[in-house]
Design a protein around this nucleic acid. Structure first.
Lengths: 194, 194
DNA sequence: AATAGATGTTAATCTAGTTTAACATCATTT
DNA sequence: AAATGATGTTAAACTAGATTAACATCTATT
């Protein structure tokens, strides 16, 4: 039951009293998932927002052709969920799946609403978290439009070196919006040109 | 000084007492911009979050080649700002420019922080606004990866019929991430095939 | 150690979308 | 009404990246 990473994370945004921390901890659930297990499934209502204590997940969309499109990887000290489904409590567009055995701290929708009532400061915390996520998402749209696949890959490697090493290449290709074959070509070009 | 649209908008998310409404109204500024005027500029710190009473804006990024990439159009009853720059108060990556004469209601960073203190409920309001914006942004990434330009254009027309009619085609092409020439081709194909 | 399944590479062919360039249309200003 | 600038169209040549398919490498399981 390691709550330290979560509390330290929260403390970067807002400060909680000891009582508030205890209220918060009373409303969370620790949960272990195995590699390949699903945390959320396209078409289902997403039941939890999850803080990652350890492990790694991918959030992806499966299109009508059965092709996977990864929107996001998440690792330790970050969140994972189908946020759209979670906040509206309606069937979601995304799958969230563990890429490694993962230790998560889960906030259910009801518990989080309850927490917002008891500790209004948490609204601020989650506002800030989502603000940052939104900004990153906007920047990604721009990058996809204004940069080539090679440039996007180089930025990805620099920005997320940990993820680059932990995740199979064909998933990184999916995240970059290209095929695994083309990513392979890019990598060989990069090796040749240095 | 028409505050009705703003108050009605807010009321969809949270309910304010009359006193709270008055505090809020004391912290906002009404401001008129002319067509082509800039609300935020790439490289500058964005000073305001703006509720649109009337008018229309584009948020865009200018790349090293001098090409414009539109991330977002905003019209009445929606917000416009370089959110990343606004929340961090650091130089921004985006320009926000009026496409029509526009009446805006401005929240400066300081005033908004002040308001959060006086009316903590507003954290909830802005959390919800940004949540929705983030979800829309994620869906757009998916659409860009899994759909063709033609499909994306058809969805755009259906989702934002008002904007489609108000904004020149070459800007819609930029929003869709394609050239104006290719959008022109798509349109002629669509006319031919119905 | 042999087999199967998951991951990664290479190369040929193909295509969605770009680039370039010339022209058409419309609105605004003189 | 002529001229200028902003917007939109068409078509030919081109390219980034997809598709297909064959093969290579690495694990994990029997």
């Amino acid at each position: 039951m390691n709550n330290k990473p979560l509390l330290e994370y929260i403390n970067k945004f807002i400060s909680l009293t000891v009582e508030e921390e205890n209220i918060l901890l009373s409303k969370i659930v620790h949960r272990n998932y195995l590699k390949d297990q699903y945390i959320a499934q396209q078409g289902d209502i997403c039941k939890s927002a999850n803080f990652i204590n350890s492990g790694c997940t991918k959030t992806f969309y499966m299109d009508k052709e059965g092709q996977e499109h990864i929107v996001m990887f998440s690792i330790e000290d970050w969140w994972t969920s189908d946020l759209g489904s979670f906040i509206t409590q309606t069937p979601g567009d995304f799958n969230v799946q563990c890429l490694e055995n993962s230790q998560l701290i889960q906030f259910t929708h009801d518990n989080l609403e309850e927490l917002y009532k008891q500790i209004p400061k948490l609204e601020r915390l989650f506002r800030k978290i989502v603000e940052r996520a939104f900004v990153a998402s906007q920047k990604r749209i721009i990058r996809n439009f204004s940069l080539t696949a090679k440039e996007r890959y180089q930025i990805f490697k620099k920005t997320y070196p940990k993820i680059d090493q932990r995740v199979p290449q064909y998933m990184i290709a999916s995240y970059l919006g290209i095929t695994k074959e083309f990513l392979s070509k890019i990598k060989s070009q990069l090796i040749y040109n240095q």
